[in-house]
Design a protein around this nucleic acid. Sequence first.
DNA 1: GTTAGCACTCTCCACTGTTGAGTGCTAACA
DNA 2: TGTTAGCACTCAACAGTGGAGAGTGCTAAC
Lengths: 351, 351
Amino acid sequence: MSWENELNDRKKTILKSIIDVYIQSAQPVGSRTIARRHDLGLGSATIRNEMADLEELGYITQPHTSAGRVPSDKGYRFYVDHLMQAHQLANEEIMRLKQAMEDSAEELNQLFKRVCSIVSSFTGYPTIVMSPQLSEALIKSVQVVEIDEKHLLVVLVVEGGIVRNRLVRHDETLKEENIVKLTNVLNSMISGMKLGSVLMPMALEVMTVTGLTEALIVQILDAVKECIRSVESTDVYLDGITNLLNYPEFSDLIKAREVLELLNEEDVINSLAKSAMRRPSLEVRIGSENEIGPMKELSVVTTVYGHKGRSTGAIGIIGPTRMTYSKVVSSILYMKDLINREILKILNERE
Amino acid sequence: MSWENELNDRKKTILKSIIDVYIQSAQPVGSRTIARRHDLGLGSATIRNEMADLEELGYITQPHTSAGRVPSDKGYRFYVDHLMQAHQLANEEIMRLKQAMEDSAEELNQLFKRVCSIVSSFTGYPTIVMSPQLSEALIKSVQVVEIDEKHLLVVLVVEGGIVRNRLVRHDETLKEENIVKLTNVLNSMISGMKLGSVLMPMALEVMTVTGLTEALIVQILDAVKECIRSVESTDVYLDGITNLLNYPEFSDLIKAREVLELLNEEDVINSLAKSAMRRPSLEVRIGSENEIGPMKELSVVTTVYGHKGRSTGAIGIIGPTRMTYSKVVSSILYMKDLINREILKILNERE
DNA sequence: GTTAGCACTCTCCACTGTTGAGTGCTAACA
DNA sequence: TGTTAGCACTCAACAGTGGAGAGTGCTAAC
């Protein structure tokens, strides 16, 4: 990018100072504040000149004549890409996170819910956690079990100890050996395949082998399909929305309501989560870089977790553009590791 | 109650008018408004006198000298118990509700989620729906299925087509006949019992019949217990919290945040739902009648749905004390019927 | 028992002047 | 040539001020 060079070192330092201060105070920051707070050995007038330049280049803006300066989205972008110092999580912070994960869940969805609440309470921002996309996971087995004369239960087991089932109601009289045959056929045809690319057998095919009626077989195949769909579909967890109300940018009730309603829309959250999945490991989307209209005053930090390409999910943190990016980024990366470890633990206990 | 008689008819009429107007306007209502709006054939001065009485009796209060009057909790209570007119749902309203339920779900939990969102968007208030308490439901069967050499799947089927399962990992070599025996034993011992009062068999007992090791049997019994617990545990759905921000009583951001945070606490919602279950068919709890501190400015309308004493859940609507009680009450009662019908439908399709 | 009239109270709002923070520009300085 | 002190100017925020409007309680008359 050409504009990486349009700032000399002094301008960079000043820009960084402005943003650091503004992230803390949420107040437009003036030249004097910078001159005093950080001893750059410069007078306020000099800084004023530099700030005028920075404004012309679009890194900061003035809410009105004779107010201080406020970072623009472009300013934040530069800050995130080049200026931000990695936030070292303090030991006690690390302890806090670890400890919160300690008395952990055995269920995966409990884990995600927990993570969501930990992250949001730790960072103070609303947090989304998306459970892994499992279309790459392998099917371990399919079982058809007779519950009573009128009901069969179809059970699908996927690696990682994930189980789904579906009841099938019917009016036929069945022999046990037929059901055993059915289970065997189904297993030979789809177990070991990836969830996302299962080729369901034809009903006729199964019919000749098992001697069951077509109607019943269709029902059972549908049940299997539904089980597969249900495993594939990802869950989205959301926590800490009301945290936003703590930040002065939302002290306007109208705006606050707008944003809260936005985050309550399932569609919005889903699309947010999905778009996070498409990205590389870490992404920071700042203000107007978001597609959705009313999100133009928010920033979203996302990362993906998971193993070896398959079974990856996402975490996202939402905040005002004036976000403590450095802390958020380091927390989200740290949590990602914790999740990965925890998932391995749960899976290993099961395999 | 003795105080039912302390109001003559005219006072009752005036009180009703005050509350009706206040519910609409959220503004303290003055004597002139009442005198004009409802032609009671009384001058404003007369009404002023009556209002002074009502205030002394505690039915209304004055925010400050020379403002109009505002209903007190006691006033609302009297209104709900004696004055409120049943709100006739308009035909179009009924259609709207029915239609929203139309393209219905096959899954129970989808149903509850849907209901929750319908009610909250229809009434304009946050709504809680609590899935049925199933401790009275009967166990239909238990199955133990071999998934592979190292895993058994325990499946619990409860009436109404509810199925839960648990994976059990083990390191033993099993004969198929042993597993069949186990399934039979378990079934003969607990199927047909009520979820809430299952007497789990002793491990030793099962051991002698099936020839399996004690360790494995303990694992399996635990799995069954967990399945039972999981069915028994009720889910709570919540929707439409941000609706509250539309009401002027929460235009104070501090108060708004307090309330929103309150409704985001799982404990609060759970205890709210639970206490609803203990009550008779319909309950209106007004302001200070709520135990929880910050809820003293909110009212809660709850009812229970369900059949024949077993499998009952609850619906609750939360709003400011200035709530459109009549509309809320009639909607909640109507929805209760719709839910009952819908549940029957889902269950019948399954049985 | 009801009501018109009146004095009184209190909120709300618009208007005002003051204060303080911050800017841009210019001229002087190193 | 880059830096800085000084100055005039701008604007938001705040506290007072005063009138308008809504509502009350009381009293006296009907």
